[in-house]
Simulated scan of single mutants.
Amino acid sequence: MLVTAEIISLTVDHIRNVLANDSSGHDWWHIDRVRRTALEIARQEQADLGVVELAALLHDIADWKFHGGDEHAGPRAAREWLERNHVDPTVVDAVCGIVAGVSFKGAGVATEMPTLEGKCVQDGDRLDAIGAIGIARAFAFGGHFGRPMHDPETPHQLHESFAAYKAKHSPTINHFYEKLLLLKDRMQTSTGRRLAAQRHAFMEAYLKQFFSEWNADFGRQSPVNA
């Protein structure tokens, strides 16, 4: 599908402006990392690079988490932007389909992408949610919404519906068990799975250290699933 250098450049400027004041971990640099990662996956998997790049740039244009839980806000904003810039309708549909389906929606909710391009973008987005940067983003997000770092009296939940997942207000450490530690096994490309392995292991090591310090467990390591 034809995606011009001009629309990529315009979209970069647009997204940088839209997300200029974000402090939740969904800022421009998140978008740029997802773009670069998704493009690398796309090269390895032989996907359409133009569609992947454009969808990666637009995947958080209006995230439901910041728009009252409206899951249609993102694809709607992406479509308005692309149509205003006279992008080919086939590209518009492909990109908006990816934007609509990219988000994690709960442990019990299937979110498989129907296209190779969608798989590349979704894997790129999920890779940025795990590992060292993923840990930093999780705490930035929790702080942004005033959530506690950890509360051992609040058990984590594996949400069975998107509605339940959207309604959650759990501590940041719970988020590891409710989403982040699940992502390795939800990668949809072989490249994504390979890249996820090391980042997942880093999170497991981090949690062992976190609980060791939290519990003043000097000389012992608490299990990841504490």
Rank of each mutant, 00 (worst) to 15 (best):
H175Q: 08
D27L: 08
R147K: 12
D185Q: 14
K179I: 01
D93N: 11
M1F: 06
T37N: 09
F66Y: 11
L116C: 07
A94Y: 00
I8Q: 09
V87F: 03
V109L: 03
F211H: 13
P155G: 05
V109H: 02
L39Y: 04
A197H: 12
R126C: 00
V95W: 06
E112P: 13
H14D: 00
A167G: 01
L158C: 07
V92W: 05
A38M: 08
G124M: 09
G74E: 02
H159K: 10
H156Q: 05
M113L: 07
A73T: 05
H175Y: 06
V95A: 12
V224M: 06
I41Y: 06
G69D: 00
L10Q: 14
H156S: 12
A77V: 04
F145I: 11
A129S: 11
F145Y: 13
Q209T: 12
E160F: 02
F66Q: 15
A197P: 10
D63Q: 12
V99S: 05
Q188R: 13
R126D: 00
G69V: 03
G142S: 01
H86G: 06
F139D: 01
D48H: 15
E45D: 02
A226H: 12
Q209H: 11
E40D: 11
S161I: 10
K208S: 04
L195F: 08
G134A: 14
A38T: 03
S222V: 03
V99L: 04
G50K: 15
R199H: 02
Y206H: 14
G74I: 13
W64F: 12
A226V: 05
A163D: 08
Q122L: 08
N174A: 09
A107P: 09
F210A: 07
F211I: 07
S24N: 06
D27T: 06
D27M: 08
G108N: 06
M113I: 03
D13K: 15
A55R: 04
A56T: 06
D128E: 14
L183K: 11
E213A: 14
V92A: 10
P155K: 05
A62I: 08
Q188N: 06
C120Q: 06
V87G: 00
N21C: 02
A94R: 15
T154C: 09
V51S: 10
H150S: 04
V51M: 10
Q122I: 02
H30I: 02
R16L: 01
P171G: 02
A5N: 13
R199F: 00
W64H: 11
L158Q: 12
F141S: 01
L2N: 11
T11E: 04
V51T: 12
I41F: 03
G97D: 08
A140M: 08
M149C: 04
R220V: 07
G68M: 13
C96W: 00
Q221C: 03
H144Q: 10
L195D: 00
D32N: 15
D123L: 07
D125Y: 10
N85Q: 07
D128C: 12
T90F: 01
C96G: 05
A164S: 14
F66A: 14
G25T: 01
